[in-house]
């Protein structure tokens, strides 16, 4: 029983990585209709920025904040430069662009920082805490808390601020939004910037666990795509819930299903994507009408 509880909690811990990447993917999709396959490598670049600053002697939290700011700017710039010219194009064009971004950014990351994995020390120390009978490291707990706060802030931003409302309006009905003097292009760039920032939070705060390397986010991206599929690409809440569910599911599967070791964990997102597309293509939280072609 305690063992199961332990597995659930640590699955939930990694679930926060998938939840934030899934939220980022969902923000981009809602705005520009692109499934951003580069969302993972963008978070990787953020982790490298933080790592570079920390190795130069900067305190972790300052490096964290600077990495977020840089990620926001780069995310918005990517929208301006690479997405704007193909705005409103077919899903196939969008797919090609974000896959090209993925390959391009991976090359840039390897070029700047090399292929050797690096270590970033945990800002939460090496201790561990007992939570309702299960033992969690301070890093696990702290990282989850930081991501949770980020997700809540993002939710509050969209729900309660007028800028959040304008961004939702621009994503949902751009033609009508323009008639209400909303600069839709600016809102989309903002959306990409925010998405990059949310992804960066996960990338930097989980870097001590994942290790800093060009491939650090690869499997998380797959799980995040599965999470967004599960929750529905149109639903921010759905993406987050999907991420947490997948974290737990992947962890339990690797522990209890014979034949699925941690190497085969990725069978889980594959199975989820397949089943959801088969049974409920709009996702658990999506509406049938909003499935994009």
């Amino acid at each position: 029983m305690t063992e199961l509880w332990q597995q659930i909690l640590s699955g939930l811990g990694s679930g926060f990585i998938y939840a934030s990447l899934a939220l980022a993917i969902c923000l981009v999709f809602q705005g520009t209709g692109a499934v951003n396959f580069a969302q993972g490598v963008m978070a990787t670049a953020s982790a490298y920025v933080a790592w570079t600053l920390v190795t130069r002697g900067m305190p972790f939290w300052l490096a964290f904040v600077l990495a977020l700011v840089a990620s926001f700017i780069v995310g918005a710039l990517i929208e301006r430069v690479f997405i704007r010219p193909v705005e409103g194009s077919s899903p196939l064009v969008m797919l090609t662009v974000t896959v090209a971004l993925l390959i391009g950014l991976q090359a840039v990351v390897a070029l700047i920082w090399g292929d050797d994995p690096q270590q970033l020390e945990s800002p939460f120390g090496g201790g561990s805490v007992e939570v309702l009978g299960a033992r969690l490291t301070a890093q696990q707990l702290g990282a989850a808390a930081v991501v949770l706060v980020t997700l809540l802030l993002a939710g509050a931003f969209f729900r309660f601020t007028t800028l959040g409302l304008r961004m939702r309006a621009a994503a949902q009905n751009p033609a009508s939004a323009r008639l209400l003097s909303i600069d839709v292009g600016r809102m989309l760039a903002l959306g990409w910037g925010l998405a990059a920032t949310v992804g960066a939070v996960a990338g930097v705060i989980f870097a001590p666990t994942l290790g800093v390397s060009p491939a650090m986010m690869d499997s998380s991206l797959l799980l995040a795509l599965a999470a967004a599929t599960l929750g529905g690409f149109e639903s921010r809440v759905g993406a987050v819930v999907g991420g947490l569910v997948l974290g737990v599911a992947a962890n339990l599967a690797s522990r209890y299903v014979p034949g699925i070791g941690s190497d085969l964990q990725l069978v889980v997102p594959f199975a989820v994507i397949f089943l959801v597309l088969l049974l409920r293509p709009q996702g658990l939280f999506g509406r049938a009408s909003s499935v994009r072609a």
Binding site: T162, L165, A169, Q172, N173, A175, R178, L179, L180, I182
Partner: peptide
């Protein structure tokens, strides 16, 4: 639109997923 031109478009331009109140707030923000 910022020059005080309002346009009620063909098809009504409703923000269908937003509430009625949020739709009106968008008008006020304009």
């Amino acid at each position: 639109a910022r020059l005080a031109v309002g346009h009620v478009p063909e098809g009504r331009g409703t923000f269908v997923d937003l509430t009625v109140e949020e739709n009106l707030t968008l008008g006020v923000l304009a």
